[in-house]
């Protein structure tokens, strides 16, 4: 495959060079001709050859270029190898910012570029601000909220024997007292997709999607920790086997977008300079064609108006 790509690239470049050479000779001949429309004719030739250049640039890009999504989402501390560029990046921070209306207004990943384990540079990757390094670009592709933390959880705490519960908003990792009771709650952990690892006999994260969100809540009574329990949003009746002084329900939670999971797209565009050269040539060609128009029979061209 690499050989086929190389051959196609060489063939498209050869075609572009051949057309350019032919056109150049025609431009030289057209320039020698006097009379109306001479410049427009040159412009027409430039425009047509630029189409070939644009196509060659596009072909080169599609054949020798690269575009692939990174294999995984990365949290802060995660690393991504970019073998095409001979470097790797470490995510230092990844976050989403929202407007008051709830619309996302910024997806950003602060990364450190590493070469042979050495820190080379830092860069903030945003949607219109890729990291370009060693001819390879890293683009902000997706951003998800954290799979292991939440901003806060809204818990319904129903003391044993009580008919009604009390709603408390518990920020992650902070102990919050339950009004009107001697109880307190603290969110210790969060899994966006909870599963139970039977072999290790422990809770585990199944995926980063919010398929089965659960929070581990520590319950205190009169200042003493009395126990902890996983509370599931999707299974409100799940009680577990603990003997806590209250029943707990996970009513809602605020996803943590300040510690997001970021995903990049890796891209290399080797034909871009040729493509942009084609764009410039076509823009010049079109300007010449339409500024120095060939007067047509019956039409009021610039010269006939003058």
């Amino acid at each position: 495959m690499p050989l086929a790509k190389l051959l196609l690239t060489v063939a498209s470049l050869a075609l572009a060079a051949w057309v350019a050479a032919c056109t150049w000779s025609r431009i030289v001949r057209a320039a020698r001709v006097r009379g109306p429309g001479r410049v427009a004719k040159i412009g027409s030739l430039v425009t047509h050859v630029s189409i070939i250049v644009v196509i060659a640039g596009g072909l080169w890009m599609s054949v020798a270029g690269l575009r692939r999504a990174a294999p995984a989402y990365l949290a802060a501390g995660g690393e991504l190898e970019v073998p095409e560029g001979g470097f790797s990046v470490r995510v230092d921070e990844a976050w989403t910012e929202f407007a008051d209306s709830g619309m996302p207004v910024e997806y950003a990943s602060l990364v450190t570029v590493l070469e042979d384990g050495r820190e080379v540079r830092k860069h903030r990757i945003e949607v219109n601000q890729p990291l370009l390094h060693n001819g390879v670009g890293l683009y902000q592709l997706e951003m998800l909220p954290s799979a292991t933390t939440v901003e806060d959880a809204v818990l319904e705490v129903v003391p044993m024997g009580a008919s009604q519960g009390v709603r408390v908003r518990a920020p992650f990792g902070q102990e919050v007292r339950v009004a009107g009771t001697a109880l307190s709650v603290k969110v210790l952990a969060f899994y966006s997709d909870f599963t139970y690892d039977i072999e290790r006999r422990t809770a585990a994260l199944k995926s980063i999607r919010h398929e089965n969100p659960a929070v581990l809540v520590q319950v205190g009574e009169a200042g003493e920790v009395v126990g902890e329990r996983w509370v599931f949003a999707a299974f409100p009746g799940h009680e577990g086997d603990t003997t806590l002084p209250c029943r707990l329900f996970l009513a809602d939670y605020t996803p943590d977008y300040r510690h997001g999971l970021t995903r990049f797209e890796i891209s290399r565009q080797p034909g871009a300079p040729l493509l942009y050269a084609g764009f410039v040539a076509m823009s010049v060609g079109l300007a010449l064609v339409f500024w120095f128009r060939v007067p047509l029979a019956g039409a009021r061209g610039r010269k006939s108006e003058a």
Binding site: P130, L275, M282
Partner: peptide
């Protein structure tokens, strides 16, 4: 120039391909 070229240059910057 506006719809195609400027769009392609912007797409290359934002999406990694023109």
């Amino acid at each position: 120039i506006g719809a195609l070229f400027a769009g392609a240059i912007w797409a290359a910057r934002a999406w990694g391909t023109p």
